[in-house]
Amino acid sequence: MNDQWIDVCAVGEINEEDVIRFDHGSHTYAVYRSADNEFFATAGLCTHESIHLADGLVMDHVIECPKHNGRFDYRNGKALGAPVCVNLKTYPVRVDGGRVLLAISA
């Protein structure tokens, strides 16, 4: 499987401990910047009721869904308790030349 690297944004467009929404084709992604300046990406919709995670709260490597407060570890997509029980899909991210890049399967 070949990964295609997609330009998401400039590094400075995501604040520390924050998330942005990124749409590409028919897919929505959530791209995170941790407090220790690392970048991560997951599917952009909560696995519970398909709510956009980019509208949620980020704290300590956790994204909290804005609708029912379901929580996920955005580093590995792990669902952290009810009402969410299905993990999020995660995607590789890298920084190159001050740009955040997301790998999707080609």
Score class of each variant (00 low, 15 high):
residue 100 V to Y: 00
residue 79 A to W: 01
residue 70 G to Q: 09
residue 73 D to G: 10
residue 60 D to H: 13
residue 101 L to R: 11
residue 9 C to P: 10
residue 37 N to Q: 08
residue 81 G to F: 10
residue 39 F to T: 00
residue 71 R to N: 04
residue 8 V to L: 07
residue 96 D to K: 13
residue 21 R to I: 00
residue 17 E to D: 04
residue 36 D to E: 12
residue 82 A to H: 12
residue 81 G to K: 10
residue 13 E to F: 03
residue 70 G to D: 08
residue 83 P to K: 03
residue 30 A to F: 04
residue 44 G to P: 09
residue 11 V to D: 02
residue 58 V to N: 11
residue 95 V to A: 06
residue 73 D to Q: 12
residue 53 L to G: 15
residue 96 D to Q: 13
residue 10 A to P: 02
residue 19 V to Q: 01
residue 22 F to R: 09
residue 4 Q to H: 06
residue 20 I to W: 04
residue 77 G to Q: 11
residue 70 G to K: 07
residue 2 N to L: 03
residue 10 A to V: 03
residue 66 P to A: 13
residue 48 H to C: 14
residue 24 H to V: 05
residue 104 I to K: 01
residue 92 P to C: 00
residue 3 D to W: 06
residue 95 V to H: 02
residue 47 T to D: 13
residue 76 N to T: 13
residue 67 K to Q: 14
residue 99 R to A: 03
residue 17 E to P: 00
residue 85 C to I: 08
residue 81 G to Y: 09
residue 85 C to D: 07
residue 86 V to Q: 09
residue 42 T to N: 05
residue 1 M to V: 04
residue 11 V to K: 06
residue 70 G to Y: 09
residue 19 V to Y: 01
residue 60 D to P: 11
residue 48 H to L: 14
residue 53 L to K: 15
residue 54 A to F: 15
residue 7 D to N: 09
residue 45 L to D: 06
residue 105 S to W: 02
residue 101 L to V: 01
residue 56 G to S: 15
residue 34 S to R: 00
residue 81 G to L: 07
residue 16 E to L: 03
residue 10 A to R: 07
residue 42 T to K: 01
residue 74 Y to T: 08
residue 69 N to G: 13
residue 78 K to N: 04
residue 71 R to V: 03
residue 105 S to T: 10
residue 41 A to V: 02
residue 83 P to D: 07
residue 77 G to T: 09
residue 64 E to N: 14
residue 1 M to W: 02
residue 24 H to P: 05
residue 66 P to H: 13
residue 45 L to P: 02
residue 23 D to H: 08
residue 3 D to R: 06
residue 10 A to S: 03
residue 87 N to D: 08
residue 30 A to G: 11
residue 38 E to G: 01
residue 42 T to E: 10
residue 92 P to N: 04
residue 101 L to D: 02
residue 106 A to Y: 04
residue 91 Y to T: 04
residue 106 A to N: 12
residue 41 A to G: 01
residue 2 N to W: 02
residue 106 A to R: 13
residue 19 V to D: 00
residue 88 L to H: 00
residue 46 C to K: 08
residue 40 F to V: 06
residue 34 S to Q: 01
residue 68 H to I: 13
residue 73 D to S: 12
residue 92 P to T: 00
residue 50 S to C: 15
residue 60 D to Q: 14
residue 22 F to D: 05
residue 11 V to T: 05
